[in-house]
């Protein structure tokens, strides 16, 4: 089988985003939620590279990708910090038990 590389990347992007979103829909563990977010964003990073490759603006795309990685890491750190605090205060990481705010 000889798939062209852009197609492989495209499939990877779709898989990463799909797995991430699916995970967000079903998982109940907060850590896994953060991981799922990371998966989606990694898909987005690849999408930037692919787009840069398609239009011949690879260096611009790379700089964008790097920026996204930095910003996204901060989000992940904040998310994990919140998760740690929640574990400390409530003793659980389950999303279902985190539903005191509703209606």
């Amino acid at each position: 089988m000889n798939l062209p590389i852009p197609l492989v990347v495209l499939i990877t992007i779709l898989c990463l985003a799909g797995i991430g979103l699916y995970c967000l829909l079903i998982t109940r563990n907060l850590i896994k939620v953060v991981i799922a977010l990371q998966l989606i964003v990694k898909g987005a990073v690849l999408a930037f590279i692919l787009a840069g490759n398609m239009t011949g603006q690879l260096n611009l795309a790379q700089s964008m990708a790097l920026t996204v990685i930095v910003a996204d890491t901060i989000v992940a750190v904040v998310g994990l910090a919140l998760a740690v605090q929640i574990r400390l205060k409530t003793g659980s990481l389950d999303i279902k038990s985190l539903s005191s705010l509703k209606r």
């Binding site: 979103l21 967000l24 829909l25 079903i26 998982t27 999303i95 279902k96 985190l98 539903s99 209606r103």
Partner: peptide, 17 residues
Amino acid sequence: LRVTQTGILNWNVFGIL
């Protein structure tokens, strides 16, 4: 209508999708 505010994260993400 208040039922729609479930308070469960999975449903919230479902709304986005």
